[in-house]
Amino acid sequence: MPENKFHLEIPSDPNNLITVEEFVNYFSKVLQIDEEKMSGLMLSVTEATTNAIIHANKCDLNKMVSIDVTFENRTLKIVVRDQGSGFDPDKVPDPTMPENLLKDSGRGLYLMKVYMDELRYNVTPEGTETILILHL
């Protein structure tokens, strides 16, 4: 059976994003994801992890971020778990609206929505799961 589950766990340090990129490169190669999808996938996973490290875990090195990837029925599911208290994605402004175009917030979430087929959040007592779905 080819490998179809992948796992990474990192402390909440932005310097670990390079490890996340290597991880995405690794499982993309194993799963033979084409370059076009790979570039949006890389951006989405790093944006989700950046949010987890910086906004959720506040760069607290005692808090971990885990990434679980499963590939079944040509569907890639990536779950990024943080130890933060969650947020309401509906309150994040649309960065493409004229009044928000020059603002900093919301662009990472917007990019994940553009590049992924589905983006969900699951708030649990332990933290928040960002769930990215991509059909290959």
Binding site: L43, E47, T50, R107, G108
Partner: peptide
């Protein structure tokens, strides 16, 4: 080669 949302924010700081 690549940029993310925080990179775009940095460019927007200059623009502002």
């Amino acid at each position: 080669e690549t940029c993310d949302s925080s990179g775009l924010s940095a460019i927007l700081v200059a623009n502002r």
